[in-house]
């Protein structure tokens, strides 16, 4: 630990030469605050204002409407299926990519990221082209009476596609930075591969993993474009929350639309709080690491 007095001194010096003039600071902060207020805070506030426009009673009624409840259930179910699937994939992909060297690795990373650059509309379309009645596998599926698009499996598939890179994206850089030395040491000491993974790798990546799952989950519940193409919009059956918002909105039922939207906004906020919490934990770790 350096002498506290010295440190204060240092801070004082650096403050005077290594930052902007007070007015410039004020301008930059004001710009950031105003920009974010115009683009983020106001839309968010608007959602809640509209949702509560007719009081808390109407708000609650909108959320307990049977169709809204089914939409919420469907959304939770879809996320509960899609997120674990992508979680397992993310861990497997980053294990292979980060802990080993093999040809075509960069290409593989690109492929993992591919869904990100695909328009959600196209993401939905590809499954219709594959599983729709006019699609490649459509006639075969129909002969077995299997319904993929315009039913739960199609919605799950589209959601998995859209959230595909999230967990892997968080894990790969972290695991690459960490290298394989720790695990190799564990193996040398007689641990099995699985044990090395569980006791060495997993604790090392847990934060990033959790973070990836949070993002993946938020995106899975909020996806609109891709799901809209494969859902079929059957009321009380294949409507997820974002689609239900659109339906209510199109029925001029603005209070109910924004009420359901506010649930999604709350979900987004919970995600952000969870994320901030993670960062805060990390922030501490970083601070310790530096001293």
């Amino acid at each position: 630990m350096p002498d506290p007095d010295l440190q204060r001194d240092r801070v004082y010096v650096s403050d005077s030469v290594v930052t902007e003039a007070p007015w410039a600071r004020a301008v930059i902060i004001a710009f950031a605050a105003i920009f974010l207020a115009l683009f983020l805070l106001l839309p968010l506030g608007l959602i809640f204002r509209e949702a509560l426009a007719k009081g808390i009673g109407a708000y609650w009624e909108a959320l307990t409407d049977p169709d809204a409840v089914t939409a919420i259930q469907l959304t939770l179910l879809v996320a509960a299926i899609a997120v674990p699937l992508n979680l397992v994939f993310g861990v497997a992909a980053s294990w292979a990519i980060a802990k080993f060297d093999f040809p075509g690795k960069s290409f593989l990373i690109t492929l993992v990221d591919l869904p990100f650059s695909v328009s959600p509309v196209v993401a939905g379309l590809v499954y219709v082209l594959l599983f729709g009645a006019q699609g490649l596998l459509g006639p075969w599926l129909q002969s077995w009476n299997i319904q993929i698009v315009f039913a739960l499996p199609g919605i799950v598939l589209a959601t998995v596609f859209v959230t595909f890179p999230f967990v892997a994206r968080e894990l790969i850089p972290l695991m690459q930075e960490q290298g394989a030395a720790d695990e190799e040491a564990a193996l040398t000491l007689g641990a099995s591969g699985l044990r090395a993974f569980l006791t060495v790798t997993l604790p090392n990546i847990r934060w990033a993993l959790l973070y990836g799952v949070l993002l993946c989950n938020a995106r899975a519940m909020g996806e609109f474009g891709a799901v809209s193409v494969v859902s079929g919009h059957i009321r009380g059956l294949t409507n997820t929350m974002p689609l239900h918002v659109e339906i209510l909105y199109n029925e001029y039922n603005f209070v109910a639309a924004f009420a359901v939207a506010s649930l999604l906004a709350i979900l987004a906020l919970v995600t952000l709080i969870g994320k901030t919490f993670l960062e805060w934990r990390y922030g501490e770790a970083i601070a310790h690491g530096r001293r």
Binding site: A32, L36, L215, A218, G222, A261, L264
Partner: peptide, 22 residues
């Protein structure tokens, strides 16, 4: 504010569109 920055990421796009249009 720092936490808010991620909002567009988690907010469903249709909701964002409706709110922005309004």
């Amino acid at each position: 504010i720092d936490a808010m920055v991620d909002l567009p990421f988690a907010l469903p796009t249709a909701v964002a569109g409706i709110a922005l249009a309004a």
